[in-house]
Design a protein around this nucleic acid. Sequence first.
DNA 1: CCCCAGGACGTCT
DNA 2: AGACGTCATGGG
Length: 303
Amino acid sequence: MLKTDTILIPIPALFSFQECLWFLNRNYDDCLHEIRQDSIYKALEVKGEMVLIKVTENGAFLELDVLEGDIDADGKEYLVAYVKDWFDMDNAIQPFYDLLKTDGRLAYMTDRYKGLRLIGISNLFEAICWSIIGQQINLSFAYKVKRALVERFGKSITRDGVSYYVFPEAAILAEVSKEDLKAIQFSSQKADYMIGIAKAFASGALSKEMIIDLPDFESRKKALTAHKGIGIWTANYALMKCLREPQGIPFGDIGLLNALANHNIIQDRKEIEKINALFAQYAGWESYLVFYLWRSLTVREPA
DNA sequence: CCCCAGGACGTCT
DNA sequence: AGACGTCATGGG
């Protein structure tokens, strides 16, 4: 099928496609998108149909091309909303920069990482599963496990001999066996956690809409941590990446702690009061601060 | 063998 | 509430 659909999305102030690309391409092997020549290729499922999109920069616009899959006007609208949410394009982040500029230790970020946006995970089930996979293991291994899971249980669409995957549906993962997951290097505990979460989503006991409808951050966090396998770190990570809760601070995150130590904001990992004092200065932009601190971490070279 | 990695959970005080 | 031990798995 030939490419026919091109959509242009205006780029807002303080937005850098190159910085967003850096995050998506930071030497980790993420199976849910591919980057070639400054373009992002990603599979999505739109109204039950697999679609392959390409996102690239085109002057003052992001260019969104539908490479595979038939979509109607509603589908286009969905894709535009998806990309805007993915790159947090509707968020005016100048107030965050104003805060950074008053912070001697972090002011440099407004230049060095200018235009970096908090890259999201719009699927709550995926966001939770990904954070469960990432619990207490190094990121390289976490991406390896995710790839095995996605390539085994996720739908895909192929173009030019390359397959692009979407994250598996909850209904599928709800039915897999613990042994299936252990075979792709899940720990026995994480296998139980993820099957349990998948069953909750598959049955409707848990959903993004339900969490959004809760009145405030604390009740959302409680609703998530009520499930086995979702602790403070996982709940806050999911709320930060999916629901874009500013208060979604993944407390205890080793990367966050390392970044704070690198900036001499803390000396050791137990200085909770210093961490709280820092985030108090960034009220409303806590999750952005976390993301920028992650950005500051040097990334290992690929093996 | 050791320690570490984008933690969670139980069980003690 | 908060500290501590335990659980799993792969990488260095």
